[in-house]
């Protein structure tokens, strides 16, 4: 125990770890914030699909040897988010089938591209590269100062968006028909929401990797919904839950050497079960 503690304290003196500790709570905060409307609007699948798109884009960025992959991955993911949203509304192709199509397609394409061009890629260690993009491994510990700034700026943008449009997000999530019937431009808000989702996913990919993003988005919202019954409380609880889990996860993984992303997700899952039990107890209290 003492050993782990000293390792942790020692690692905290590294600037990479410090940077990770700034980025992690920010990413956790953004993803949980958006997670609530995403889950409630039955958009969780879109989030999952988009994370695979982000992986595909990341593969291309790696092959192209881009110094800052954000610049390619972000616009591509935003574009696909808008596309997926449109498809979901157009009932010709079933919404979930369309999402599955795009997500599997980009996943396969991304892996193929990385494989075909592995010689030109920056790193010689191909499978470690793929693993890092898919599962995050410890890429959060390799952030540059620029990455952290970008991450902070995007987080501020996401939080600002959520605060400014909080009530409108509630309204279009609760009842889109009513919202547009009474004069709200639901299409515009849906579009904004899709763009912000894309931003959050690109951010979260740094922390937990493409395949695990959904966990970061869904678990906080679902956990909070077990216990709380108003939108405001669910949002607040999800945010606190997510930030705490992420910090706990990273503090566990640094000294023990487990991969950051999956450790955080494991903590999230543990938290979810805890909240399920809390929810049961709370219900017992109300209806004995």
């Amino acid at each position: 125990m003492m050993d782990i503690w000293t390792t942790l304290m020692y690692s905290l003196t590294f600037s990479t770890v410090q940077r990770a500790l700034i980025a992690t709570p920010l990413i956790a905060l953004c993803s949980s914030l958006l997670g609530v409307p995403l889950v409630l609007k039955r958009f969780s699948l879109i989030g999952d699909g988009l994370s695979h798109v982000a992986f595909g884009a990341m593969a291309i960025a790696t092959v192209l040897n881009l110094t800052n992959s954000f610049l390619l991955v972000l616009p591509v993911t935003i574009l696909c988010a808008i596309l997926l949203l449109r498809m979901g509304q157009n009932s010709k192709i079933k919404g979930d089938a369309a999402i599955a199509m795009i997500s599997v397609g980009t996943l396969a394409g991304g892996y193929l591209i990385m494989n075909l061009f592995k010689s030109s890629a920056r790193s010689s260690n191909f499978s470690a590269d793929v693993c890092a993009t898919l599962f995050g491994s410890n890429s959060i510990l390799t952030l540059s100062t620029l990455d952290v700034w970008l991450c902070a700026a995007l987080s501020v943008a996401v939080v600002m968006f959520f605060l400014l449009f909080y009530h409108k997000i509630f309204a279009i999530t609760f009842d889109e028909d009513f919202a547009s019937a009474t004069g709200m431009n639901a299409k515009v808000y849906n579009l904004l929401l899709a763009i912000v989702i894309a931003v959050v996913i690109v951010l979260a990919m740094k922390l937990v990797g493409a395949l695990l993003i959904s966990a970061l988005v869904i678990f906080p919202a679902l956990s909070a919904m077990r216990v709380f019954k108003s939108f405001k409380r669910v949002v607040l609880c999800a945010v606190i839950f997510s930030v705490l889990c992420a910090l706990l996860g990273i503090f566990i993984s640094i000294p023990t050497g487990t991969p950051v992303g999956s450790t955080i997700v494991a903590v999230d899952i543990a938290g979810f079960f805890l909240f399920c039990i809390l929810g049961l107890i709370k219900r017992r209290r109300v209806h004995p």
């Binding site: 409630l40 409108k168 509630f170 004069g183 919904m225 108003s230």
Partner: peptide
């Protein structure tokens, strides 16, 4: 969708005002 939505009565009623805000 509304059936399992976490929302208080006040939150729902107030959202009626948003159209003109």
């Amino acid at each position: 969708v509304q059936k399992d939505f976490p929302a208080s009565v006040r939150e729902v009623v107030r959202s009626g005002c948003l159209g003109r805000s």
